[in-house]
Design a protein around this nucleic acid. Sequence first.
DNA 1: CCTCCACAGGAAGCGCAGGAGT
DNA 2: ACTCCTGCGCTTCCTGTGGAGG
Length: 401
Amino acid sequence: MRVMPNLFEGKIKESSIFLNRDIMLPSYTPERLPFREKQIEEMVSVLSAAVDDHKPDNLFLYGKPGTGKTSCTRHVLNQLDEFVRAKGLAVKIVYMNCRHYNSKYKVLSRIVQGLYPDRDFIGYSGTFIYENLLKYCKENACRLIIGLDEIDKTKDLDELIYALTRANDELQNSSISILGISNQLMFKDRLDPRTKSSLCERELVFPPYNAEELRAILKDRVKMAFKPDVVEESAINLAAAIAAQESGDARTAVMLMLRAAEIAEQGNHSKVTDKEVKKAKERVEEEIVMDMICSLPEQQQLVLYAIARLTTDKKGIKKLSNEECVLCSGEVYDEYRKIAEKVKASSVSIRWFQEYINELEMYGLLLTTNSGKGFRGHTRLIKLGFDGEKIRSILEKHLLA
DNA sequence: CCTCCACAGGAAGCGCAGGAGT
DNA sequence: ACTCCTGCGCTTCCTGTGGAGG
């Protein structure tokens, strides 16, 4: 009997372009953080109080996504941890993301769990957990530093901050400091004024990167992740320029380059050039649009589908004087009703249909203008924002499934 | 000029779900 | 466990608007 080859045989492929693909993934924490020297220095100067056996001020970091907040924090906290371990200092560090630990109870449990790794705190009351937090600080006379990433995701943040800052009143040779990180500057205004002033004893802004900085960051990563001379200089420049224009976000730039590299690999090209970056950008944009369409409520999908059908079937299309092809909202509503009936879905009133049109326009999926001369009465002229065939085919799969 | 058309969009209110308060 | 409240999605009703057509 012939032995079948294992299914995974031949799946280990030597990449022709990557040295280490992981370096291009969002989870990678870079060791060097260029253009953030000032922020790192500031963080170190605040936290160094702990090394000196004083309470560090609470520190609040904010800036848009991909501006290096998390990477810098991780880096600084790692360094601090390494340092205090080597010197045998009583400094404890707990870091977590509040997207997962999104309530006072969950955050406190996570902290205490980190302090007592051998014990299990599942199921105990909030008070018991809080008591244990205080007990640990008192017994170990330690400086506790709590890093809370995406702190704005915590539901009862006022109470959490209050509990943590009030703990300091009961502690003498020990303390608790908070290092909060947020993407949203505005969220501070939703807080209780007392919470705000205690959380934001010290603040640090992470501004977006400009194109020049993104270029340097990307170049650095590319050097580590790819084989030499695989990525062309101009491709790096283009990816940096696109990311700078869109968001000033290093993550976008790196993701774009990763996509471009994957496109090159699929096409068996040994080089990543402008062409791949451009293609990657298009593909990313298309994916965003398609994801958006798929996550729309069913009724809005039906409305969009009606518009896509009329557009691709060239039914009911009016040509404007400037050659633009548009649809009138009344006809779209009729078509929508017909389609809804066909797929046995309910349909909404014309008033609500208008709101759907507004919403779809807000998402950029539609473009509308008010009718002027040449149209009876007062109607809205509707046009698709993206390719009709693509929208139609994706919605057909989605709605008829 | 008046009336009609074809719609936009405001206001009020309804039914329901989920959360807060007790 | 219970009620009460609130927000959401939606319908119904209404008023406004501006060109077309007689």
